[in-house]
Write a protein that binds this DNA or RNA. Structure first.
Length: 284
DNA sequence: CACCATGTTCCTTG
DNA sequence: CCAAGGAACATGGT
């Protein structure tokens, strides 16, 4: 469930439930999930710490930790990879499938589970560096987008997904944003006109914030166990033009919600991209 | 068995 | 040198 909107909603859900909780014990079921330190070192840097604010940078969750004296002591950073999940449960609840690391708290526990094992947990003391701007930051203007895109000849879709270019955009939302902006994924980045960069900026902000809105609403109105996969629940329902479903992602052959032509699936950098041949012309 | 999969990083090829 | 593509990571679902 890991692109910016899903991580953002997860972050907002976890924050109030973690604040003040004490990390008493760490159980590592999958050592490879611990990044850049031994399991021993990692555990030692966790035990006894108290959870503070929870935030997000790109697709990473950052759990602020304090020492038992109350002083700030860095972060627990979780990158979900493709299949990572985070859940909070009572101690007597059944564990989720594919548990990788369990954090036992003074009340309940936090479980990171991961079927494919591409997610990573890190103990860090500085904010992540080398990442592109946050698209929902008020400072993120069309000009900032233009700067981030640079004078690259890369296809715009591939460029959008590059973490050092822009934070938080993955395969799903790259396709959605480009559809919304009416830009073909294969357009060379440097060929985009100013008006198109403007449209793309607007599309990125509206698609991402709408996804957060939908994801957040889903957590509040039932089906809490499945909210992270809301895009799968809504497959095929995207033709309402706005709201819950994806407009193009995973909708090969389905009618474009804007013009009715069948959505095409193409390949780019060995990943699937979905595009409407009518609404996203190859030529500006 | 074949092919697909929400991410990131590194290597190879042209 | 650069850019684009592909592989790798490790595993499950269809």
């Amino acid at each position: 469930m890991p692109e910016l909107p899903e991580v953002e909603v997860l972050c907002r859900r976890l924050a109030p439930r973690l604040a003040g909780r004490i990390l008493q014990r760490v159980e590592i079921h999958r050592p490879a999930s611990i990044h850049r330190s031994s399991t021993r070192t990692f555990t030692g840097h966790c035990i006894g710490r108290v959870f503070g604010p929870v935030s997000r940078r790109a697709k990473r969750l950052l759990f602020g930790l304090n020492s038992d004296g109350g002083l700030p002591d860095g972060f627990l950073q979780i990158h979900l990879g493709m299949t990572g999940r985070v859940a909070i449960g009572d101690s007597d609840q059944e564990s989720p499938a594919y548990p990788a690391v369990t954090f036992h708290l003074d009340h309940g526990r936090l479980v990171f589970s991961d079927a494919r094992g591409l997610g990573r947990i890190d103990r860090v003391w500085v904010m992540p560096e080398g990442l592109g701007p946050e698209p929902l930051d008020p400072e993120f203007t069309p000009g900032r987008l233009a700067t981030a895109l640079g004078n690259s000849s890369q296809p715009i879709k591939v460029r959008l997904m590059h973490p050092q270019c822009l934070a938080g955009i993955g395969n799903i939302y790259a396709a959605e944003c480009l559809f919304e902006a009416g830009i073909h994924p294969k357009r060379p980045t440097r060929d985009l006109r100013e008006a198109e960069v403007h449209r793309l900026h607007r599309a990125i902000r509206s698609v991402l914030s709408q996804a957060i809105h939908v994801g957040w609403a889903a957590t509040r109105s039932g089906n809490p166990a499945k909210w992270t996969l809301f895009h799968r629940e809504t497959r095929g329902l995207g033709s309402d033009g706005k709201g819950s479903g994806f407009r193009v992602y995973d909708r090969e052959g389905a009618p474009c919600p804007r013009c009715g032509l069948p959505i095409q699936r193409i390949r780019q950098a060995s990943r699937s991209t979905y595009v409407c041949p009518g609404c996203q012309p190859l030529k500006p």
